[in-house]
Design a protein around this nucleic acid. Structure first.
Length: 572
RNA sequence: CGGGGCGUGGCGCAACGGUGGCGCACGUGCUUUGGGAGCACGAGGUUGUGGGUUCAAAUCCCACCGCCCCGACCA
């Protein structure tokens, strides 16, 4: 590909809106352009990078027996009504009517379509198991996109679906995917950790997320360096030192003017925050008002809270009006005196004696509040966020917390969708059984962005060879001093193109200064930068720069020809 | 949806009541050619949209639209 004809442009200045390195570099190097909030075009370079990622995924899924297919982006709403998700999912699903006034949706994922195909096609246990997958556009109208390609609204995802006779079969498919994902992210140059995770709206019994460790990640991971324990903090059990037993003291009121936070309360009373109880207030999607109590040194984990009370439709923070209407005072709140509320107490808080809690009276707290003596919880569960240094649930060593970006996930769905849609097979036993499904996703664009996050320097991108849009970037310099430069460069370019699409290279044939060409080559990030110039010819051939290491050598033209035709590597 | 910020040429920015400018990028010519070259000439904007105030609005006011950041949210 000649740079003079490539549909792209590089930018000298950083775009103002790009904060993450991957976003900044992908814009500056001409890989992507933004169309709207969370909606991007992939320019030819970005498209090629995405296709390289796609091919790695394809190879590894084929290796576990996956069959590639393609399902539609537009679905009839009735299909989603059958699974119950048409109503369960909120505004993040785009809905519209077709010309016949029929309700339609844009696909967020494809479990329903797979289940629909299963009930159409699968009759007998003899047809199971199998794995199907596709690369297809998803639209999720996220309330807020961010970070360039990291979190977008429209994106292409590889989603695969395993279809089995039973749980044992699902288990095999699930762990096959786990191993395939491990290989995929290794090949993509992404250092990931697989963490156990919440099943969320997908439903199901077991799930892992593959997390790329990055400070900008939106998920918090609980990791143990001693035993390898790894979980999303949403689901990691909190293991805290057992509170020291004490006699229960009588409740006493204490005046605490203008003390509305735990920090202020602990400082004012001269007690550690672990001797206080923190009340937070939520309203569930199904309309219940929830008072959640954790110890003052912990935060509420909303995922655990949702699961503890089986809140369909999730939860949101309560408004001041909703809190006061139930007889509580924000800043001085506690379940004592609460009306019409579901009281959920963290198990640790419930075991901790003589805590300071709100008095539901402005300017006052209560000392020596104890559960269940002073109020009765409706639910007592672990609903606290793990803190750094808490004990590992696996081995007891102190855990560390890290941020991660979810680059892939695997779910054991079970029969949630097949039972709802009636996708059954006739078993060897002569009985009808619902097909057992698993669902497995990898977002392409997010992976491209994460690869850039992991592989760049201040000059630009440094693509791993496995995903580079082109294997090499050829720079021709000083053609006016020595016309042979152009002749050789043209020949190398044509040679590579003739060797097949996978050997094609980028050829900077533009009439630009050496500085511009080198700067652009570094920014675009191909693994090998080849320079033909009077100087390199003088030195015996072509200068070869390894983008990753920065090493430069001069190699004979014959070596370069062998490399471009795929007959030899250049070594590292 | 709450909080904050910003919309001026392709990109980055200035002008903050008196008919819009700079750097880079872009075009032409000459010079230059191993790390973002030089000179000259030139093209490119109904200042996001609509209303209002004013003799006069990019500038002040209102509404809307859009984008970014924090939060809520998120398979």
């Amino acid at each position: 590909m000649r740079l003079s004809h490539l549909f792209f442009t590089t930018l000298r200045d950083d775009p103002a809106e790009a904060e993450m390195p991957s976003h900044r570099l992908l814009l500056r190097a001409g890989y992507v352009r933004q169309l709207g909030a969370g909606i991007y075009s992939l320019l030819p370079l970005g498209f090629r990078a995405s296709k390289r990622v796609e091919q790695v995924i394809r190879e590894e899924l084929n290796a576990i027996g996956g069959q590639e297919m393609e399902m539609p982006v537009v679905h009839p709403a009735d299909l989603w009504r059958e699974s119950g998700r048409y109503d369960a999912i909120g505004p993040e699903m785009a809905r519209f009517k077709d010309r016949g006034d029929r309700d339609m949706v844009l696909a967020m994922t494809h479990e329903e379509v797979v289940a629909d195909l299963l009930r159409d096609i699968v009759r007998s246990y003899r047809q199971l198991p199998f794995i199907v997958y596709h690369f297809q556009t998803k639209f999720r109208d996220e309330p807020r996109s961010r970070g360039g390609l990291i979190r977008v609204r429209e994106f292409v995802m590889k989603d695969s679906y395993s279809c089995d006779r039973d749980e044992a079969g699902l288990d095999v498919a699930y762990w096959a995917h786990h191993r395939a994902y491990t290989r995929i992210f290794e090949r993509l140059g992404l250092d990931t950790v697989a963490v156990s995770s919440d099943v969320g709206m997908m439903g199901g019994s077991l799930a892992h997320e593959f997390m790329f460790l990055n400070p900008a990640g939106e998920d918090v991971l609980v990791l143990c360096e001693a035993c390898g324990y790894a979980a999303n903090r949403q689901v990691a059990p909190t293991v805290a030192p057992e509170p020291v037993a004490e006699d229960l003291h009588p409740v006493e009121e204490v005046e605490t003017p203008n003390v509305t936070t735990i920090d202020a309360l602990a400082a004012f009373l001269g007690v550690p925050s672990s001797r206080t109880a923190k009340a937070t207030f939520f309203v569930t999607g199904d309309g219940r008002f929830v008072v959640a109590i954790v110890r003052g040194d912990y935060d509420v984990n909303e995922t655990k809270l949702v699961n503890a009370i089986k809140a369909t439709g999730g939860i949101r923070p309560a408004t001041v009006e909703e809190i006061t209407a139930r007889g509580m005072v924000p800043g001085y709140g506690s379940p004592i005196g609460a009306r019409d509320s579901v009281v959920v107490v963290d198990a640790l808080a419930a075991r901790s004696p003589n805590l300071v809690a709100g008095a539901n009276r402005t300017g006052w707290h209560l000392r020596n509040v104890n559960v269940p003596r002073d109020y009765a919880p409706d639910v007592t569960e672990d609903i606290a966020n793990v803190r750094e240094g808490d004990a590992c649930p696996g081995c007891g060593a102190p855990v560390i917390l890290r941020n991660g970006i979810e680059v892939g996930n695997i779910f054991k769905l079970g029969t949630k969708y097949t039972a709802a849609l009636g996708a059954e097979y006739l078993g060897e036993d002569g009985e009808r059984h619902p097909i057992v499904m698993g669902s497995y996703g990898i977002g392409l664009g997010r992976n491209v962005a994460c690869i850039v996050e992991a592989h760049h320097d201040d000059k630009g991108i440094k693509w791993p060879e496995e995903v580079a849009p082109y294997k090499a970037h050829l720079v021709a310099l000083g053609a006016n001093k020595n016309p042979e430069v152009t002749t050789i460069a043209e020949r190398l370019h044509d040679l590579a193109a003739a060797a097949g699409p996978q050997h094609e290279i980028l050829y900077d044939d533009r009439d630009e200064s050496p500085g511009v060409k080198f700067a652009d080559a570094d920014m675009l990030g191909m693994p090998w930068i080849l320079t033909v110039s009077p100087r390199s010819l003088e030195a015996g051939g072509i200068e070869v720069k390894h983008r990753e290491t920065g090493d430069r050598t001069v190699r004979p033209i014959a070596d370069i020809e062998a490399f471009l035709e795929g007959r030899a590597s250049l070594g590292a």
